[in-house]
Structures are given as structure tokens and as C-alpha cells.
Design a protein around this nucleic acid. Structure first.
Lengths: 347, 347
DNA sequence: GTGAAAGCGCTAACAT
DNA sequence: ATGTTAGCGCTTTCAC
């Protein structure tokens, strides 16, 4: 079971190891007859080039990495589906883009860090990598980014010499809120935020605030309620808002899962959506299209995040000295029934 | 930007490279004071061990691989969601399990094979890998499996000395079909299959046939219709079945996506499900819980497939000579409204 | 077009 | 507890 090497192949094909190597790297520079001999020998032996040896000799691995937080534990049903989905979509986007560029993808979810932290183990094996916000200690990132390309996805731009990617959270929520105010004539809107430390939720809240301000409506300093991004959290928040009396005319949830939880509570309490209460989310998860009423939301380009991350990585690999770039990906408004817009036609 | 090596760290910490290496591999065997010196030096330099050099020297990479087919192309909405979801869940399962065992995960979707096929590029970088059925030419697999652990997920067991993992397709469909016959008293059932070459769909059909036979009902030699596993395919198949006259009392779809497409067509044609027509799927995708009527289905343990694959890999890594194993993972019956069972209570 | 030889950065005996 | 020294399997000049 010990793997054959270039030496074995070379011997069998009566050529030097250099030629074997060439057959794989620059087939063009080897005479056809010789090349065939090598290929046949390789096949007979079951030879596969060692990625490690290659990487070591050529100082590049042909692999790009992705680090993301380890969402949720067990077999939890779908409440973790969102974050999980988020990471998955990014993974898929990166995977595709990486392959297009001839790279493989190494993925690693953080757990805890021994002396060899997650980053280090990834960093040692790849030509560059992407990190989802708040996966990795800033300090470690700082270190790594001095030696190989790193792009930070979502979240605030913590390290200024890093390439950075985010979505237009503020803009998206501003536009959505303005839609509620201007197009549906609503004036009492409640924002349901996420945990204090979520920069995404904060940016969305800021967009919400701006829209109120722009419309000369009273601007709350804090979200009317907070949730933990799960459906359960959304239910909870909706209940609290309703219990408070003087219910708003619209609930603007910081994400879709919470909005869907909210929808459920509203229905059970006999409120009609959108007639009595408009509801909007953020993210654009598939579920939102299926729930009734279908969910109006701000759709994130999740897959494109992954693709763009790879693009940035590849660019920087090609030109290590180019200025760090920060890109903001646009979001799109998905107007369905829960805000009062007409139910879109089924496909 | 050229990465520091053990030599740089050793020099800075006034120790030998061996000591540096030890600090990372067996911290216990180095005096604390020395260890700290090394760690400090490493940190100052931004040192990260090279995975390649490590792998080369130690003949093991600490990475497990996964190859899967490249489902669908563009940004296709949700019709590819299923296969995609399937692969994702397996990926997640493997990722978690791999991490538990201290491995990272390299993923690669096949595209086409140059001289360096997908397998080869994966095989050269990992300690062992899993392959989703029909991703990789059998011949290549045969070759690879002689040099490193390979486990084949789903599909038939094409190579007998490979570890192999599958789900109880036949059993699951047998039980489901029997439920329709015995518990709901249905007697005219139509099976909607997948492409001819899908071993999964075939196994499910076989389970369907067995159930009919066991109930002394007429046993069709072929599925009543076929689809391509998408919702559109399911719609199409349902339409054809309906157009044929003498509609069945139940449609048994080879997977959930098709079943959901079927549900849609039935509703539009004014048939009530399950009153006029029972519908069941296979897979257990999240969407099935949300559609109305909610979909009765056979749920696959997707994530566990990934976990088990890793377990098999790790076992074989520990004992390369153990007999090849083939495991069949159980499926579960998910009875919801579309077969005539009561709608389960919302959570 | 092909071969010879020098590393790539690390681990793993084996010394000390 | 720490240092010395071979490789690991490949790529890559540089000759021929």
C-alpha cells in the first residue's frame, strides 16, 4: 500500500524523474512517444502525484481555504438552518469559483483553538483563504494576513490591510423600510434586532433608523426587541411586542428566520398579515417564498459572496502588492405578500 | 511575504529546528522555558508550519477528501436545491466528523477530467476520501483504492474491496408503500421513477414492487412515469399520469422535489390531496414540512452518511487491512398529511 | 527533448 | 531535554 513515486514511474518507463514530472506539468515539452510510455507506466502502477511534495517544491498548494464558525451542535432541526445555510451557500459559491480557477477548497469550521489554531492549520495548507466574520481571533488574522492572502467575509472591516467583503446591510434595510413607509403608508414600525454583538444586525438597524429619520418619523435609539436569529427568537420577540400594547403597524425583523417565527405568532393571535401588521425579514432564504403569506425580504447574494471571495483571493495571489480592497455586494428587494404587496405569481 | 520556516524560528529562539518541531508536535517533551521561547519567536515571526512539508515528511496530511458530482450549473433556483442539499448535508456531516477526529476536509466537485483527474488531485492531497456515487470513473476509483482508503457513498457497490455506504432505499419504500396499502386502504398506486440510471430510484422502485407483491396487488414491471428529480419533472409526470385517465389513488414519487411538483399540479387540477389522491416522496427535505398538505416521505439520514463515511475512513486508516465494510443506514418514515395521516402539530 | 542534481520545510530516528 | 542528520516526493535550473 505504499504509494508509487516519480522514481517508480521513471524506472518503469525508462526515463528520468524529470521527464515524469514534465509529463504532468508541461505535457507539450515531452515527445509524444515518451509521454505515452510514462502515462502507461503511471497507470499500471496507480501513480498519483503527491500534492504535498508538489506543494513543497513549488511553493503553492493549489488549494484555497474557508474558515467559518461552527454553528450549532447537534441535529437540531431547522433553526440553525439559516446560519448553516448561509455558510453553505458561501461554501458552494467558493467551491465553484475555486474550481473555475483551478483550485480545490479546504473547509474548516472553528471549534476551539489549541496551540495550533484553526487558522494556522488552514493557513499552512493553502495559498490563501477566506474567513467568515468572527470565526478567528483578529490577532491571528493579523498575523496570517502578513504571509498569505486573506479575505474577510461579512462583518466590519477589522483589519485594514485585509481584503474585505460585505453586503449592503444598511442600504438594503433603508430601502426596505422606506418602501414600507412610502409605498404602504405605514408610520409605526418596530425593528426586531439580533444579539448586541452582531454587526450585521446593527447595520440593518442603522438603515432602519435612517429611513425613519428621512421620513421625519420618530427614531428609536434601540431596537424595539431583540432575538437570537432563530424562529423561536422571532416568536418570542413578536409576543413581547404584542403584549406591550399599542402594537406597531409593521415589524421589521433583522433576519428571515425571526420574521417567520413572527408570522406564526401573529397568525395565532388572530392578526392578519399584512392587513393588520406588515412583516419583513432579511436574507432571502428559500423558506420565505413558501410560507403564507410569503415573506417580503431583502435578499443577500450569498453565493456571490463566496465567488467574489475567490476572485479577490486569486487577484491578490496574482498581484500580492495591490492595495487591499473592500467590496460591498448589493442586495435586492424581494417584495412578496407579507408587506402588503401582491402575492407574486407561482412559477 | 516569504514565509518563515522552522529555521528562522530556531535561530531566533536559539534552539535547533528539531526543538521547534517538537514544540508543535509534542509540547510535553520540551522544557517549558524553551517552549515559551520558541512560541514567542514563532509568534513574532508569524510562523505557521507548512502543511505540505509536514505531510511530506510524515506521510500523512491530516486531511480527508470528498468528491461529488457538480450538480447543475448556474444560479438556478431551487430545483437543484435537492441534490445540492444532499451533497451539502453530507459535506456538513463529514466536516463535523472529520474535525472531531482532527482532520480537515477537502471538497471537490467533479467537472471534467484532464490528464489529472479530479480524483487524482484529491487523492494526492488527502489521507483518504469519500466519493458520492457516480462522481468518478470506476476504473479510477479502483486504482486509487489500492493506495489509500476510499469510501463510496450511495449507489451500488461497484468495487468490492471498497468500503461502502448506502441508505435503505428498498426497505424504506417498501415500508412506505405498505403503509399506503395497509393503513390507508389504497390499491391503485403509481410509482414515479427517476432516470433509468439512478440506482437509488431503482432500489426504491424495487421496494415499491415488493410491497405490491406482498399485498397481492398487480406488480408493474416499470414505473408508471419517470422524472428527472426536479419539481418541474414531477409536475410533468403528474400531468401525464392524470392525462392517461383512470388515475391512481396514490402517487409514489422517487423523491421529494418531484412529489412537491406533483402536489402543485394536483391542486391546480382540482384534486384534493390526500382525499382524492395520496402523495408521498422520498428524502425528507425541509421543504416537505412546509408545503400544504405537508409531505409524507421517507427521510434519509443525510448528515449521518457523511459522519459514517468519516468513521469508516478513520477506521481503515487505523487498520488498513481490515475487511472492506458495507453499511446500510436506516431511513425513517415521516408521516404527514399528504398520505392521509393527520397533519402533525406545529412545533 | 531529456537527464542530473539541488533544494522546498518538515519529521523522525539516532546521538548526546 | 535538545541537537544532528537523513530523507519525504516533487519541481526546477542547468547541462547535454
Amino acid at each position: 500500500m505504499s504509494a508509487p513515486t516519480v522514481y517508480d514511474v521513471a524506472e518503469r518507463a525508462n526515463v528520468s524523474i524529470a521527464t515524469v514530472s514534465r509529463v504532468y506539468r508541461n505535457p507539450g515539452t515531452v515527445r509524444e512517444q515518451t509521454r505515452d510510455r510514462v502515462l502507461v507506466a503511471a497507470r499500471e502502477l496507480g501513480y498519483v502525484p503527491s500534492g504535498n511534495a508538489r506543494g513543497l517544491a513549488s511553493r503553492s498548494t493549489g488549494v484555497l481555504g474557508l474558515c467559518f464558525p461552527d454553528y450549532a451542535d447537534p441535529d437540531l432541526d431547522d433553526d440553525d438552518a439559516e446560519q448553516t445555510l448561509y455558510a453553505d451557500e458561501i461554501t458552494r459559491g467558493m467551491e465553484r469559483a475555486a474550481r473555475r480557477h483551478g483550485y480545490a477548497l479546504l473547509i474548516a469550521a472553528s471549534l476551539e483553538d489549541g496551540p495550533e489554531s484553526l487558522v494556522a492549520s488552514v493557513a499552512g495548507r493553502v495559498d490563501g483563504f477566506a474567513v467568515l466574520a468572527r470565526t478567528v481571533a483578529t490577532e491571528d488574522l493579523e498575523l496570517m494576513s502578513r504571509r498569505l492572502p486573506v479575505v474577510m467575509i461579512a462583518g466590519p472591516r477589522e483589519i485594514d490591510h485585509l481584503d474585505h467583503l460585505e453586503v449592503a446591510n444598511l442600504d438594503g434595510e433603508f430601502t426596505m423600510t422606506t418602501h414600507l413607509i412610502a409605498d404602504h403608508g405605514l408610520r409605526r414600525l418596530a425593528f426586531v434586532g439580533g444579539g448586541e454583538d452582531s454587526p450585521d444586525a446593527r447595520a440593518r438597524f442603522a438603515g432602519f433608523q435612517q429611513a425613519l429619520r428621512a421620513a421625519d418619523l420618530p427614531v428609536p435609539a434601540e431596537p424595539a426587541a431583540r432575538g437570537d436569529f432563530t424562529q423561536a427568537g422571532g416568536r418570542e420577540a413578536a409576543r413581547r411586542l404584542l403584549a406591550r400594547g399599542a402594537p406597531p403597524q409593521a415589524m421589521v425583523f433583522a433576519n428571515d428566520q425571526m420574521a417567520i417565527g413572527g408570522l406564526d405568532v401573529l397568525e395565532r393571535q388572530g392578526m392578519r398579515v399584512p392587513a393588520d401588521m406588515a412583516v419583513v425579514g432579511f436574507d432571502g432564504i428559500p423558506l420565505g417564498r413558501v410560507v403564507r403569506p410569503s415573506l417580503t425580504t431583502v435578499t443577500q447574494p450569498m453565493r456571490r459572496l463566496g465567488e467574489t471571495a475567490v476572485d479577490l483571493l486569486v487577484e491578490r495571489l496574482a498581484d500580492p502588492d495591490r492595495e487591499p480592497r473592500s467590496e460591498m455586494l448589493p442586495v435586492t428587494q424581494t417584495r412578496r405578500a407579507s408587506c402588503g404587496c401582491p402575492e407574486p405569481a407561482p412559477r
